[in-house]
């Protein structure tokens, strides 16, 4: 279980408010986080990744402490071994499609496997600005998978994909998640977007 019990003050374009999360996420399954815009879904994912620090509380993964305000401890982002798909993709303009994946792994066979999965093999030498919105989004997903993360955090990862492509991709993702025993936490506005049997929903 990932046990999270945190408080975080958020100020921004949706006004000031306090994000309170006290819940547990199951390992090796998919959890969908839903809720209206501006309620703090992205902030929750960033707290799990270690990119944003809560004002108070704890984050535990099994018996491993990831964050504990009381002990003033936060496990480094680099050591949490998570994958993150950003809403704005956050691609590296200086790297080709293939270089993005090479930045995450040296395993060339795995890189090929990912490129096939995302139907991007023929685009491997292109730079982000030479890709369509949907292709950029797929690259964001493949890059997050390149490090074989134990925990994968996805922030509206399929918004730019057409229905047919999305269904082909999610089919392959389900296989990969089962194989790598990935814990997936996904922000989505559509119920069971990944189409898995054993799925949890967390309403923020």
């Amino acid at each position: 279980m990932i046990k999270i019990d945190i408080v975080k003050k958020i100020g921004g374009r949706y006004g000031n408010f306090e994000l309170n999360v006290n819940t547990a996420f199951h390992l090796n399954t998919v959890t969908e986080v839903s809720g209206p815009s501006g309620i703090g879904k992205t902030t929750l994912l960033k707290i799990l990744a270690g990119l944003t620090l809560p004002d108070a509380g704890t984050v535990m993964v099994e018996n491993d402490i990831w964050f504990d305000k009381g002990k003033n401890f936060s496990k480094k982002v680099q050591h949490r071994h998570v994958g993150f798909v950003f809403q704005d993709y956050a691609l590296f303009p200086n790297m080709t499609v293939k270089a993005h994946l090479k930045y995450g792994t040296d395993d060339l066979a795995y890189i090929d496997y990912l490129l096939e999965m995302g139907e991007m093999k023929h685009l491997e030498n292109r730079f982000p600005k030479q890709l369509s919105g949907g292709q950029q989004q797929r690259l964001g997903i493949l890059r997050a998978l390149s490090t074989k993360p134990r925990l994968l955090l996805l922030d509206e990862p399929f918004a730019a994909l057409d229905a047919a492509l999305k269904s082909r991709l999610t089919n392959r993702l389900r296989v990969l998640f089962a194989e790598q025993q990935t814990t997936v936490i996904l922000i989505s506005h559509q119920e069971n977007e990944l189409g898995v049997d054993n799925m949890h929903i967390y309403n923020l």
Binding site: R80, F92, R143
Partner: peptide, 12 residues
């Protein structure tokens, strides 16, 4: 998010 994406991938 550009540097965040890199940190998440384990890069210093």
């Amino acid at each position: 998010s550009m540097s965040e994406a890199s940190y998440v991938m384990g890069k210093s």
